[in-house]
Write a protein that binds this DNA or RNA. Structure first.
Lengths: 149, 149
DNA sequence: ATAAACCCTGTACATTAGTATCGAGTCAAG
DNA sequence: CTTGACTCGATACTAATGTACAGGGTTTAT
């Protein structure tokens, strides 16, 4: 049985503002919901799920435009399957790149912590340039750069 | 031997605009570099590395403010080691959360592709609600939500 | 020593992602 | 059937993250 509620209840459940929900609707991130005779928007559970999806994707560095594209993968109308597959495959590459970066990132931070612990719980840490290690690890896409002038 | 260059060369090497570099300097993401007598900024290799770090962190969903915090982990002056360790540990949690989310995300996208392939290269895909699967997987933080009204 | 290409500061403009406010209408609990 | 909380659309404002001049000085290859 679908929960139904007005915009305020949905906003509270999702932890966003009412204005944000209307904003997302205008932007096409949320479908125009059914309305009461009065014009009040009526939401079911699925909109809450979609809002949570949007929130998560945002913290992962996707822009609203990208999130819209991701959501559009579901709405197959008018798109061929091949098209969807291509887009999804491309997104997977994207996601895997992010995962890789984050792993390097984590490793660097762990090194930082390890160096701290090695230095003892008080007194000076060594230079703590573990983040340089991160840099060294993840600069694979490095281009040549302009020469000295 | 450190490469040195003016702001334009650095911008080109990092793939950002000159104005962006000056913007980051104003924001404290890049240190104020040494200058020529003329006032021209002079950059070494380390600034390029830092710029690349910033770019990567941005695509991973960190705001400039958060990136500043991450960079501050390196600048140990005035901070105790314990403090740094705590902050780094917290960041690691953060990063791991993101990795987890991205993995769910990827799984959902892979499911989507698989469903597409099962449906053949042409004709209609099934409903393709693999992203619902993603939702089901990743809604662990779900709160009760307001009741019907 | 000159001209193209570059840099300086300061300020204004743009885009993304919301937030806030207003006046008027609606809901629902007592 | 009133009253406080909610909703509506429209519009304007904000913060974060850049971008684009304008007017004037600098570098450097030739």
């Amino acid at each position: 049985m679908a929960q139904t509620r007005f915009i305020g209840g949905l906003a509270k459940a999702a932890g966003v503002r009412v204005a944000t929900i209307r904003f997302y609707e205008r932007k096409g991130l949320l479908p125009a919901p059914p309305r009461r005779a009065s014009g009040y928007r009526i939401y079911g559970e699925e909109t809450l799920q979609r809002l949570r999806f949007i929130q998560r994707a945002k913290t992962l560095g996707f822009s609203l435009r990208e999130i819209q594209e991701l959501l559009a993968l579901r709405a197959v109308s008018g798109r061929t399957c091949l098209d969807v597959r291509e887009r999804a495959t491309h997104k997977i590459q994207d996601v895997e790149g992010k995962i890789r970066q984050l792993r390097h990132f984590r490793r660097a931070l762990q090194l930082l912590v390890a160096q701290c612990e090695a230095g003892g719980t008080q007194g000076d840490c060594p230079i703590l340039d573990a983040l340089d290690h991160f840099r060294a690890l993840s600069v694979r896409t490095a281009r040549a750069g302009s020469p000295v002038r």
